[in-house]
Simulated scan of single mutants.
Amino acid sequence: MGRFQGKSIIVTGAGSGIGRATASLFAGEGGQVIAADKTDAVNATVAAITDAGGRAIAVQMDAGIERDVEDLVALACSEFGGLDIFYANAGISGGITGLFESDVTLWTEVLRVNLIGPFLAIKHAAPKMVDRGGGSIICTASVAGLRSGAGGPAYSASKAGVINLVQTSAQQLSGSNVRVNAICPGLIETGMTQRAFDYAREKGVEEKIGRLNPLRRAGVPEEIGRVALFLASDEASYVNGQAWVVDGGLSSSHPVTRQEFGKTAA
């Protein structure tokens, strides 16, 4: 019997990277998974899970649209009898456009997906979990949300918002036995970062990837997924309102080359 035998689980951003890895890990431990993503790549995730003997349903949706999130939660309840775990992982990078070069359209979209998306997950998942006597909600934040130097301005601000959101939500859900936590990944090879990894390999400088953290390497999606499984499990029954950093030690320093105002980096 796996840790999640018979549990009803939703994972967003499950078409690739961290979401795909985590959905597979949940299913491998007996979870009944709804794998959701904006792209049809989520079908490949579910195919891999079912081929391995797991149970999963693929859904294409937008994590930043309220009706889509409502429908996702309703599907979990109708198919699996309720909802126990929601991993709000979907996110976008928004590129690395500087603060003064970016516009409101970019910021609006990044905040819609990265911050409003987790808010909607908590808003609609928590009441269903209360009906089950409790549950666990995990949101993907980032080391970029801890301090500057690890992401673009819009992305960093959105992930800082996620960290505060889980703290606020944990307090708002006092006495409900619904726990809300965040994971702050460092540099992980995912669909979002793939171009940087491919470029480094093309140039023959792959060994430089992740060199700023003490482990001197990038992480893999499964290393984040295993933390998500812990936070979702009864083993983490006293962990609530926290932001768990999984970054190889990067945020112990956040070294960065600073750019002077008004000057373009070489």
Rank of each mutant, 00 (worst) to 15 (best):
F230V: 07
F230P: 01
F230Y: 08
F230T: 01
L231H: 01
L231P: 01
L231M: 09
L231R: 01
L231T: 02
A232G: 11
A232P: 01
A232H: 02
A232L: 05
S233Q: 06
S233G: 08
S233T: 07
S233E: 05
S233A: 11
S233K: 05
S233C: 12
D234K: 10
D234W: 04
D234L: 04
D234M: 03
E235R: 05
E235L: 07
E235W: 03
E235G: 02
A236Y: 00
A236M: 03
A236Q: 00
A236S: 10
A236F: 00
A236I: 01
S237F: 06
S237R: 15
S237I: 08
S237M: 07
Y238R: 06
Y238T: 04
Y238V: 05
V239T: 01
V239P: 00
N240K: 13
N240G: 13
N240M: 10
N240Y: 08
N240T: 13
N240R: 08
G241E: 04
G241V: 04
Q242W: 14
Q242L: 12
Q242T: 15
Q242Y: 11
Q242N: 12
Q242D: 12
A243R: 00
A243V: 00
A243C: 06
A243I: 02
A243T: 00
A243M: 01
W244Q: 07
W244D: 03
W244N: 02
W244M: 06
V245Q: 07
V245M: 08
V245W: 04
V245H: 04
V245Y: 04
V245A: 11
V245L: 14
V245C: 13
V245F: 09
V246L: 04
V246M: 07
V246P: 02
V246F: 04
V246H: 03
V246G: 01
V246Q: 02
D247E: 08
D247T: 11
D247L: 08
D247R: 06
G248R: 00
G248F: 01
G248N: 03
G249W: 10
G249Y: 06
G249A: 07
G249E: 06
G249H: 08
G249F: 06
L250E: 03
L250K: 03
S251L: 07
S251F: 04
S252I: 08
S252K: 15
S253K: 09
S253D: 14
H254G: 04
H254K: 12
H254C: 09
H254R: 13
H254Q: 08
H254N: 13
H254P: 02
P255T: 07
P255I: 12
P255L: 13
P255A: 09
V256L: 15
V256E: 11
V256P: 00
V256S: 10
V256M: 12
V256A: 11
T257Y: 14
T257W: 15
T257S: 09
T257G: 12
T257N: 15
R258Y: 15
R258I: 11
R258W: 14
R258E: 14
R258Q: 12
Q259A: 15
Q259M: 10
Q259I: 15
Q259S: 15
Q259L: 15
E260L: 13
E260D: 09
E260H: 14
E260R: 09
E260K: 15
E260V: 11
E260A: 11
F261C: 05
F261T: 08
F261P: 01
F261I: 08
F261G: 03
F261Y: 09
F261Q: 06
G262F: 02
G262R: 01
G262P: 00
G262Q: 03
K263Q: 15
K263E: 13
K263L: 13
K263C: 15
K263N: 14
